[in-house]
Each structure stands twice: as structure tokens, then as C-alpha cells.
Design a protein around this nucleic acid. Sequence first.
DNA 1: CTCCTATATGAATGTGTGTTCATATATAGA
DNA 2: TCTATATATGAACACACATTCATATAGGAG
Lengths: 117, 117
Amino acid sequence: MIDKCLCKLISEEEIDKILGQLPTDDTIAKLAEFFKVFGDPSRLKLLYFLSRSELCVADLASLAKMGQSAVSHQLKTLRLSRFVKTRKEGTVVYYSLEDMHIQSLFDVALEHIGEEA
Amino acid sequence: MIDKCLCKLISEEEIDKILGQLPTDDTIAKLAEFFKVFGDPSRLKLLYFLSRSELCVADLASLAKMGQSAVSHQLKTLRLSRFVKTRKEGTVVYYSLEDMHIQSLFDVALEHIGEEA
DNA sequence: CTCCTATATGAATGTGTGTTCATATATAGA
DNA sequence: TCTATATATGAACACACATTCATATAGGAG
């Protein structure tokens, strides 16, 4: 855990400043949870479809070529992280995007991996 | 895999259009890999420190309160995904950010989780 | 050449996670 | 009420992954 080298490219004061502005563990944990949601191809596909239209679970499964249960589990993840919202109509549950910042995230990511949006 | 319901809130033509514009599996996989890198608290911390200063491995370990080996493994991940670059000076390896889009990603994420940057 | 230090790496381990299967819940229709 | 359909959920399984430990590599000092 402790290593000797303190290369000291930066001063002690700078180190203190950097450590002082370090986000809390709680904030860092929330950030990681945020990005983890986007770290799965299935969820990305579902989010893509929902970015184009409100859709029910069965349609999402059909479009994404996934099992109904898998879709439902992933939608729960997306619901808990407040990326999608639901609208119920009889037995059918319609999902849609709740957070519209998603597209700008994708743009930055696509630029990094070298594909154009 | 196949469910009966096709709620048809949208037309067949719209479905075809959505499917036609669906990014390739390869692109989606790369996107997921991109976000997965940010889905870990340790890597987020390292990226935060590197956003403030160029730093060597030992200093990163000290600042992040992580073992040297753990840091080195994570830096390898960050290197492979082209988020950091290295500069060697004797036996010391200095790491720094390669992709400057990172801050804007964090801003969107912080806004979503309700913390201000 | 030898020792020490900085970093990298491979194996092992524990933990987390996505999918599937089976089943539960809920609502509409007959 | 009985049946069929849409969705949700829990358990199990397989796989991925972050850390640790031990060790390898590499460069500087003596």
C-alpha cells in the first residue's frame, strides 16, 4: 500500500490541493455506477431503441433479439438508475428515455473510438 | 427469444428505419468497452489525479491509497483503451491523460447523479 | 557485476453480473 | 371463474474482473 517514491514533480501544496478537491468516495462510487450501466452491449442496444421511440417490453425483446426475461432484468437496471421511465396500459408496459443527456455521452464516446455519429 | 406482441405503436417502416440505423455489433461492443473503463471507482480516481497532473505509478498508488500492482494493472487497462499515455525517465514511468474529452463526460454524469461539478 | 528501486505481469482468488429457466403477478377477455 | 397474455422476479450458472501475492524485467548507483 505504501511506496517510497514521491517523485515530487508537484509540490506538497499541490498534492494537498488535489487531494482536497478529490470527490468523495460516495460521489466516485455513484459516478462508477453511472458509467457501469453503459458498459453493457445489451443495455446500449435497448437505450438506442428507446432513443428512437417509446416501446413495450416485448417489442424491445424482438428488436434487440433478446429473451423477454433478459430484457426485463436490464430494464430494471435502467429504471433503478433513472435512465428510463414507464407507462402502463393494461398489461403492457411502455418504456421511454428519462434522461436526454444520453445522446451527448454517446457522441463523446463515438468520437473517442473513432466512429462518427 | 420470440414474443408474440408487436404493439405497433410504430409502423413497420419506422421499425425498419430504426433497425437500419442501429450501429453495428462491433460499434456497440466498442461503446460498451469505452464506458466499462469508467465503471470502476479505482480507475475513476486515477483518472481524476491524472486530470490534475502528470504522475508516476508510485505517486498514483500513494494518492489513491492503492497497491502498486493494482495501480499498474489498472493503468494497463487505461493505456489499452487509449485514455492515458506514458513518458519514461529512467525507471520511472510518468502517466498523463491522452483524451481530453473525459472532463465533459464527468460533467454529464455528475449532472445526472445530482452532484455539481 | 551486484544491489536496489520502479514498474510490469501472471496466477490465484473472491466478487460481481448477464442470461436462462421456472414461476409469480397482474390484467383482459370469455 | 377460468384462461391467456405481458411483465417481473428469484435462483442457478457461467463468465468477467479487480485485487493480491509472488516474481520478472529494467535501469541507476555503487
